[in-house]
Amino acid sequence: MATTTGPTPWRLAGVWWLALTAVAIAVFALLPYVAQPLDDLAADGSELAANYADRPAWLRLCLYAHMTGGGLALLLSPIQLSARIRSRAPRLHRWTGRAALAAIGIGAASGLVLAPHNLAGPVGVAGFGLLAVLWLTFAALGLRAIRRGAVTAHRRWALRAFALTYAAVTLRLWLVALVPLTGDFLTAYRVVPFLAWVPNLVVVELLLRDRRAAHLPR
C-alpha cells in the first residue's frame, strides 16, 4: 500500500504562515524603533513608546535589547526549524542555532527586567515575566539535549522555545482583534500577557503528543 511521506497541503500552508509572519514581525515591528527616537514615537501616539520614553537610559536600553534579541530569534526561527536545512546544511543549522540561542538569552533577560515596568500592570509582570523565564529555560534545555546527543529531545525543546518566540507575533494578532472589541489599546494590552503565549505552548504540546511532531516542520 502506498503511503505519503511529504507534508500535507494544510501542514505546508501552516509552516509557510509561521515563517512569513515570523519574518514580517521581526522586520516591520522593529522598523519604527530603528527609524525614530522613543520621544517621537510617543508623540505620534505609541503607548508602548510613551511608557519608556521618560524612563532611565538603562531601561530604554533593555527595551531595545529585548526587541533586538526577540526580533533576531524570530527571524532565525524558520531556518532553525527547517528539516531540509538541518539535513542539507547542518553547519548552517548549528551556527544559526548558536545565534538564536544568544538572541533568546538577550531577549529573555531584558524581557525579565522590563516585566515590572510593563503597561499591563501586575498581570503583565506575571505573564511577561513567566514568558521570559520559560523562554530562556526551554532554549537552555534544547542546548543541553543536543550536547548530550539527544536529537529528538532537542527538537522538542526547540519547538517549545519557538512557541514562546512566536509570542511576538500572536501578541500583535491578538491586539489587532482586541483593540476594536475593547475600545482602546491599554484595555486590550492587559489581556495579552498570557494570551500571547499560553495557547502557542498548548498547541505545541498537543503536537508533541504525536511522535511525528519531533520531525516538524518540513
Results as ranks from 00 to 15, higher is better:
Pro32Val: 06
Pro32Asn: 10
Val34Ile: 15
Val34Pro: 04
Ala35Tyr: 05
Gln36Glu: 13
Gln36Pro: 03
Leu38Gly: 04
Leu38Lys: 00
Asp39Arg: 11
Asp39His: 13
Asp39Pro: 00
Asp40Ser: 14
Asp40Ala: 14
Leu41Pro: 01
Ala42Val: 07
Ala42Gln: 05
Ala42Leu: 00
Ala43Asp: 12
Gly45Ala: 09
Gly45Thr: 07
Glu47Thr: 11
Glu47Ile: 10
Leu48Arg: 13
Ala50Glu: 09
Asn51Pro: 07
Tyr52Val: 01
Tyr52Phe: 15
Ala53Arg: 12
Ala53Gln: 10
Asp54Ala: 14
Asp54Arg: 09
Arg55Glu: 12
Arg55Gly: 08
Pro56Thr: 02
Pro56Trp: 09
Pro56Gln: 04
Trp58Lys: 01
Trp58Ala: 04
Trp58Pro: 01
Leu59Gly: 00
Leu61His: 10
Leu61Met: 14
Leu61Trp: 13
Cys62Thr: 10
Cys62Ser: 13
Leu63Met: 08
Ala65Pro: 02
His66Asp: 02
His66Ala: 02
Met67Pro: 05
Thr68Ala: 15
Gly69Leu: 02
Gly70Ile: 01
Gly70Pro: 07
Gly70His: 05
Gly70Val: 04
Gly71Tyr: 01
Gly71Phe: 01
Leu72Gln: 07
Ala73Pro: 03
Ala73His: 07
Leu74Tyr: 06
Leu74Phe: 04
Ser77Arg: 03
Ser77Ile: 06
Ser77Phe: 08
Ser77Tyr: 04
Ser77Met: 13
Pro78Thr: 00
Pro78Arg: 01
Ile79Leu: 15
Ile79Met: 11
Gln80Asn: 13
Leu81Pro: 00
Ser82Thr: 01
Ala83Cys: 02
Ile85Tyr: 03
Ile85Gly: 01
Ser87Ile: 08
Ser87Cys: 13
Ser87His: 15
Ala89Gly: 08
Ala89Trp: 15
Ala89Val: 11
Ala89Arg: 15
Pro90Leu: 02
Arg91Pro: 06
Arg91Val: 15
Leu92Ser: 09
Leu92Phe: 09
Leu92Met: 11
His93Asn: 00
His93Gln: 06
His93Leu: 06
Trp95Lys: 12
Trp95Phe: 14
Gly97Ile: 05
Gly97Pro: 01
Arg98Val: 11
Ala99His: 07
Ala100Phe: 13
Ala100Leu: 15
Ala100Lys: 06
Leu101Val: 13
Leu101Ile: 12
Ala102Tyr: 08
Ala103Ser: 12
Ala103Lys: 07
Ala103Arg: 07
Ile104Leu: 13
Ile104Met: 12
Gly105Asn: 08
Gly105Leu: 05
Gly105Phe: 05
Ile106His: 05
Ile106Cys: 02
Gly107Trp: 00
Ala108Asp: 07
Ala108Phe: 11
Ala109Thr: 12
Ala109Gln: 01
Ala109Cys: 11
Ala109Ile: 11
Ala109Trp: 03
Ser110Phe: 02
Gly111Ile: 02
Leu112Tyr: 10
Leu112Asn: 07
